[in-house]
């Protein structure tokens, strides 16, 4: 149970951050949309999108200050697989209008049927992908 406490606490912080962005700025904290907003440079919201992304980049260094170590990160995928996966994640989240944060946290918090459909779809696709990988290369 102990190992689940940081997960739960981290989750609560994420939910709080998502709520704060709505309360203060009236915006949905969907990372794929905000990152794409930085890329597209629309005149109005660009600085605010960039500020959110800059905050995200500061998250792990702040964790280092608080915890005294970097978060664990283990990346097993090869470079080729990382590129293929990155392309799929980038294209897919734009086509599907959201990712784990926009649909998964904000959308579910709004009880949006559209977001629930998206979450069930990307969870199912993720589960199937990992299962298939184990079948092909156990």
């Amino acid at each position: 149970m102990e190992s689940y406490l940081p997960a739960l606490a981290g989750g609560l912080m994420i939910g709080l951050a998502v709520t704060l962005l709505l309360l203060l700025n009236g915006r949905i904290a969907g990372v794929s949309g905000l990152v794409a907003g930085v890329l597209r440079r629309p005149a109005g919201p660009w600085p605010v999108n960039a500020a959110f992304v800059a905050g995200l980049l500061a998250g792990a260094p702040l964790f280092l200050l608080a915890a005294g170590h970097w978060p664990a990160v283990r990346i097993e995928a090869s470079s080729g697989l990382l590129v293929a996966a990155g392309l799929l994640v980038g294209y897919g989240t734009r086509l599907g209008s959201g990712c784990t944060s926009g649909h998964g946290v904000a959308g579910l918090a709004r009880l949006s049927p559209r977001s629930l459909a998206a979450v069930l779809t990307f969870l199912a696709a993720g589960v199937a992908t990992v299962a298939l990988q184990h079948l092909v290369a156990p």
């Binding site: 990152v35 990155g86 994640v89 897919g92 989240t93 599907g96 209008s97 779809t121 696709a125 992908t129």
Partner: peptide, 20 residues
């Protein structure tokens, strides 16, 4: 929505990374 989410899910499963 469904096609995009499915593509995203495959990429998420392959690398273990989502955008945030």
């Amino acid at each position: 929505l469904i096609g995009g989410s499915a593509l995203f899910g495959v990429g998420w499963g392959l690398a273990g990374f989502c955008p945030g």
